[in-house]
Design a protein around this nucleic acid. Structure first.
Length: 461
DNA sequence: GCCATCGGCGCG
DNA sequence: AAAGCGCGCCGATGGC
C-alpha cells in the first residue's frame, strides 16, 4: 500500500528544495526588449496626456474643478465618488468595506456619462504603464529581469512574486496583454515555452472530496468551462466564443469553487456580457440572445428570484451543480469544515498544516489551492535538477502558480518538452500516490515575444 | 520624509 | 447559518 498522504517532513523538504530551485530561476532571469519597453513608456505617456486633456475639456471636469479648485485630482477616488454620487446625483448601489461609495469598474459601469467611461479607459492605460511597464523598466538590469519568489508569505503555502510581481502580468485583455508581453523575448537561439497544468485546482480538489461524478468528468477530459458557458448563457456548443467561455470560468466555475453564492454569481455573469462585450460566434450580443430565449431581466437579487429572470436561471444551475451533480463534493465541504472545528487545524495532502482562526471558505480552499501549486513546484524542482544534471542550455525563467515558463534552446527543444510533460503528468503520480486522478498539461511556444504564442501539440512518449 | 491603511486592479 | 480564495503594486490620504 503506497503512502497516500504526505507528512511534515515531506512538506519541509518541498519548501527547501523549492526555494533553492526558485533561486536559480531568479538568477536566470527573463530577457527584456529594453528598446521596446522604453519606447512604450514614452508613447503611453503621450497617449495618457491626450486622454487627460480630453477629459479636462468635459463639463463634468468643470464641475469637479468648481468643487475642488486647485486640489482637483483625476486620481482621487474620494473626489470622484463625491462628484458622481453627490453632485451628479447618480444613485449609489455599491459601497466599500468602510462604507464609502465604491468607484470601482463595476460601480462606474452604471454611470452613463461619457466622461466616466473615458476615465475608466484612461485608468486601464494608467495601470498598464505605471504598474507593469514601469515595473519592468525599473527592475531590468543589463537587459534581464529577475523577479523574486517567496514560499514563506502566502497563508495557503503557494508562492508570491515581487520586484516586480511576475504573477499578474496582463493576459485577459488583448490590448494591454500585447503592450506588456511584447517586452519579453527569448534569448538568441531559444524559444519561450509556457507549460500549464490543466484545470489544476479542479483535479486536485478531486483528491480531497473524491466525488465520483467529478472524477469521471475529469477522466473524460471534457471542456468543463465551455459546458457551463453553454448552460449559463443558454448557448449551443458552436455558439460559445473564447471570451464567453472565460466569463463562465471566472464567473461561475471558480466563483462556485471558492464558495460564492448564486446571487453574486449571476451578477458576475450578467455584468460580463457588457463588460467583455460577449457575443455568439455569429456576432449576436448575448443580451439579445438571452432575450430570444425569454430572459430579459437580471432579477432583484433577493431571496426568491422571480421566475424567468436571469437570477432564477442561474440559481437553478447553481443548485443543480451542488445538489444533483456533485453531492459528494458538497458533503465533503461540510465534513471538512466540521473536522477543522473539532481539531482546530487541517492537513493538506502534501503534508502542510493550516491552523489559526479561519473562515469556512478559507479552510475549504487553502488545501486545494496549496496542493495544486505544490504539483507545479515539485515539477519545477525535478525539471531544474534534470536541466542541471544534463548541463542543458535551456533555462526555467518563471512560474505562475500552475504554470512554468522556460527559455528553451532550439537544439534541446524536443528533449525538454518531453521531459517537462512527463514530469508534470506521469512522474509526479508515481511520487505522489494521493494524486488519484490523471493530470494533463498544455503548452505554447513564443519564438518572437511572449505575446505571440503558438500551441504545442503534446503527446505521451 | 516615512509609514500604515484604503480602494482599486492585475493575475492564478 | 453563511455567502469569493490567494497575492503585489499604485496613488491618495492622514498621522507622526
Amino acid at each position: 500500500m503506497p503512502k497516500q498522504k504526505l507528512g511534515r517532513t515531506d512538506a519541509m523538504r518541498l519548501l527547501m528544495e523549492g526555494q533553492e530551485a526558485l533561486s536559480q530561476v531568479e538568477s536566470n532571469g527573463m530577457r527584456i526588449d529594453t528598446e521596446y519597453a522604453n519606447r512604450m513608456m514614452a508613447e503611453t505617456q503621450i497617449k495618457l496626456d491626450s486622454m487627460e486633456e480630453e477629459l479636462k475639456r468635459d463639463d463634468v471636469w468643470k464641475e469637479w474643478k468648481k468643487v475642488y479648485g486647485d486640489r482637483a485630482n483625476l486620481d482621487s477616488n474620494d473626489q470622484l465618488g463625491d462628484i458622481i454620487f453627490d453632485k451628479l446625483k447618480v444613485p449609489c448601489e455599491k459601497r466599500t468595506a468602510s462604507g464609502k461609495p465604491s468607484t470601482d469598474e463595476e460601480a462606474l459601469e452604471r454611470v452613463k456619462f461619457p466622461f466616466i467611461q473615458r476615465l475608466v479607459n484612461r485608468g486601464k492605460l494608467y495601470t498598464a504603464r505605471n504598474t507593469f511597464l514601469n515595473g519592468i523598466c525599473e527592475e531590468t538590469v543589463n537587459g534581464f529581469l529577475h523577479p523574486s519568489f517567496s514560499l514563506a508569505i502566502p497563508t495557503t503555502y503557494r508562492s508570491s512574486a515581487s520586484l516586480p510581481n511576475s504573477q499578474n502580468w496582463p493576459i485577459r485583455i488583448l490590448r494591454t496583454a500585447m503592450l506588456i508581453r511584447q517586452c519579453f523575448i527569448p534569448r538568441d537561439g531559444h524559444t519561450m515555452v509556457e507549460f500549464d497544468l490543466a484545470s489544476a485546482e479542479v483535479r486536485v480538489s478531486c483528491c480531497y472530496h473524491r466525488d465520483p461524478t467529478m472524477m469521471e468528468y475529469i477522466g473524460r477530459n471534457h471542456d468543463y468551462h465551455k459546458d457551463l458557458a453553454m448552460q449559463c448563457y443558454k448557448l449551443s456548443k458552436d455558439q460559445v466564443t473564447k471570451p464567453t467561455r472565460g466569463a463562465a470560468k471566472g464567473g461561475f466555475v471558480f466563483a462556485s469553487f471558492y464558495g460564492d453564492y448564486y446571487v453574486n454569481i449571476c451578477q458576475n455573469l450578467w455584468n460580463a456580457i457588457d463588460q467583455d462585450d460577449l457575443k455568439r460566434t455569429d456576432g449576436l450580443g448575448l443580451k439579445e440572445h438571452l432575450a430570444q430565449q425569454g430572459i430579459t431581466e437580471l432579477g432583484g437579487l433577493g431571496r426568491n428570484p422571480i421566475p424567468g429572470t436571469f437570477e432564477a436561471h442561474i440559481k437553478g444551475i447553481y443548485e443543480d451543480f451542488w445538489n444533483r451533480r456533485f453531492p459528494v463534493y458538497s458533503q465533503w465541504k461540510i465534513d471538512w469544515w466540521e473536522e477543522y472545528l473539532r481539531n482546530g487545524y487541517c492537513e493538506s495532502l502534501t503534508g502542510f498544516v493550516y491552523r489559526g482562526i479561519n473562515k469556512r471558505n478559507e479552510i475549504i480552499n487553502y488545501p486545494i489551492q496549496g496542493s495544486s501549486f505544490h504539483c507545479l513546484l515539485w515539477t519545477l524542482i525535478q525539471v531544474q535538477k534534470w536541466l542541471n544534471g544534463k548541463r542543458m542550455r535551456s533555462k526555467i525563467i518563471g512560474q505562475i502558480h500552475d504554470s512554468i515558463i522556460l527559455d528553451i534552446h532550439l537544439a534541446e527543444f524536443d528533449d525538454v518538452i518531453a521531459q517537462v510533460y512527463r514530469t508534470m503528468t506521469v512522474d509526479i503520480r508515481r511520487e505522489w500516490p494521493w494524486l488519484i486522478v490523471p493530470l494533463e498539461a498544455e503548452a505554447s511556444r513564443s519564438d518572437v515575444n511572449w505575446f505571440r504564442k503558438e500551441e504545442i501539440k503534446l503527446q505521451a512518449a
